[in-house]
Amino acid sequence: MNRVTSTDHDSPIGPILLTFVDAALVRLDVAHEGIDPARADIARRLGVLPEPDAATGAPLVRQLDEYFAGRRRSFEVELDWRLVRGFTRAALEAALDIPYGEVASYGEVAVMAGAPGAARAVGTACASCPFSIVVPVHRVVRADGAIGEYGGHPEVKEHLLALENATVLGEGLRVAP
């Protein structure tokens, strides 16, 4: 039997609920509506109420803090894909290849996922991503460069893109001793 645990974390973009099956992240939820509704939603999806456990989530909490401080560009956590179906997984795996501080259009991600012409399906995949931030769907934008909705919270997407851009630009401005 798998052990399902969760921990919550305050972040610059709001409360985050991290849920794990054994040691693999099954969902990272930016809990705009609150931690309790997010916990109820994941319990419904998994069929079990996650057991609170800060220890399991501690490494990812540390990585998220490093990311928000501009000191981390990618995450080292095993992903549990059980909440992802069909083409969505290919699209999300393609999004993992978008470099930090850069963006790709929905159409470009569709090509990367092996399905040219599936830009709308990429949009749907990004909207349903259970690994927000860790899988950088915030780096996927419209063909005209507009950032899109990001689950009804475009300000979060804007914040994440600005954070990455500031980090990249800041590194370019460093002067050698």
Rank of each mutant, 00 (worst) to 15 (best):
R85Y: 15
F87W: 14
F131P: 02
M1N: 09
P99N: 13
M1H: 15
D144E: 15
V137P: 02
T167P: 03
E108R: 15
D8R: 10
S6W: 01
R89S: 10
A90I: 13
E33H: 11
A119G: 04
R73L: 11
E93D: 12
F87I: 14
D144I: 11
S128Y: 12
A104M: 04
L163G: 01
P15Q: 14
G14E: 05
V135T: 05
V30L: 10
D65Y: 01
A31T: 14
R39H: 05
L28Y: 02
G151P: 00
V175L: 15
A143V: 07
T167I: 01
T167L: 00
L17K: 00
G148V: 06
C129D: 06
I98A: 04
F75Q: 11
E93S: 09
G86K: 11
R89H: 13
E76A: 14
S74A: 09
D29M: 08
S132L: 07
F75S: 01
R3S: 08
R139S: 00
V122D: 01
C126A: 07
V168F: 05
R62Y: 11
A119C: 05
G148H: 01
A95D: 03
V134F: 12
M112K: 15
T5A: 15
I98H: 06
A43C: 12
R39K: 11
V30E: 14
I42N: 03
D8L: 03
A31R: 12
D97C: 14
A23I: 15
L17N: 00
A127Y: 07
V137A: 12
V156A: 02
V141N: 07
P59F: 12
H138F: 03
E102G: 06
G145I: 07
G70A: 14
W81D: 05
Y100M: 11
A127M: 10
E78L: 12
L49H: 08
Y106D: 03
A31F: 12
T7L: 11
V4Y: 01
V77Q: 04
A110S: 07
A125W: 05
A118R: 14
V30Y: 10
D36G: 11
T7R: 10
V141R: 03
E149V: 10
I147Y: 07
A24F: 12
A54R: 14
V141P: 00
V26R: 01
P154R: 13
P136C: 10
G152C: 09
T56L: 04
R72P: 03
R45S: 14
A146N: 14
L18Q: 07
V26W: 02
A119M: 04
G145S: 01
W81Y: 07
H32S: 14
L79V: 07
D29N: 11
E66M: 13
T167S: 01
V77Y: 02
I42W: 00
A118G: 13
G145A: 10
R82Y: 13
F131D: 08
V84I: 09
A94H: 02
V48G: 11
D144H: 13
E164K: 06
L96R: 15
E51S: 03
V26A: 02
Y100T: 08
I13W: 02
A43E: 09
A40N: 12
L163R: 05
D80K: 09
L60N: 10
E158I: 02
Y150N: 03
L92I: 02
L169D: 03
P177Y: 05
P50G: 00
E164C: 10
A24L: 06
V122E: 01
L163I: 04
V4W: 05
D36H: 14
D80W: 12
T88A: 09
A146M: 15
